[in-house]
Amino acid sequence: MTNEVVRPLSVESQPNPALQEWWERATYVLLPLLALGVFLGAWQLLSAAGKTGQIPGPVQVITDTLPLIVDPFFDRGANDKGLGWQLLSSLQRVALGYTLAAVVGVSVGILIGTVKPLRIAVDPIVQVLRTVPPLAWLPIALAALNQAEPGAIFVIFITAVWPIILNTAVGVMQTPQDYRNVASVLKLSRATYFFSILLPSAASYIFTGLRIAVGLAWLAIVAAEMLTGGVGIGFFIWDSYNSSRMSDIILAVVYVGLVGFALDRLVYYLGKVLVVSE
């Protein structure tokens, strides 16, 4: 090989461009797989050496949870459902709370982004409340709503709404003066201005807020469900812990991570399709 490299003029030594590109791409798959293998291998070795306490090694986890992996949608009554059901039920709550947060967040964001006195008035409240951790809201939600289900949805809503409000407000404020000038010279109606200029112009900011919010919402649901019980991936983890099924917990954690990643990507691609910028 080295001999060929020092003879760059020889035709045979020229690397095939298509092959080179394929290899370039393959590294993006192979290297992460390699890292995963190293991680699992080290985990397996540590667990075989008895250094991981109660936590089983990867082989043990797969062996233990094989029924759960193979059939995610079994239903053996209210307290024993497949992981697919658990995830779907959690996603449903997130969808509800997150949609609520998106609607309220974008509306409030546009309002405080346009009306300066309102922005000045509301800003300190938003800044303080947005730092409150999701679980701290739960007792308040339960006390106010007296029910576990709406309580959990409220926690998702209250966690996700802040980044949407803040980013939308910034997006509205950042509407380029050029576009505002066009609107004022043309004397556009308020509705036309809103839908033709303000909203599209702020869209990229709004989607940034939505993307941050979806991660937070998923974060909140797992925590909320641990406390409220019922069906849901969060409660599944808690329940498995109480029954000392470590392998189930590990599988659920992997699923939570994968779903969270998928949600983030989903909003990202949605934004990419919907937002047009210069």
């Binding site: 050029d178 000038n181 010279v185 043309l186 004397k187 556009l188 033709s196 200029i197 047009v276 210069e278």
Partner: peptide, 25 residues
Amino acid sequence: MVAFQNHSLLPWLTVRQNIALAVNA
């Protein structure tokens, strides 16, 4: 009416839509 230095076209509208926005308004 102003023709702005940096054209100030709305990037989310097509050429036709940009002109139509002004004409309709």
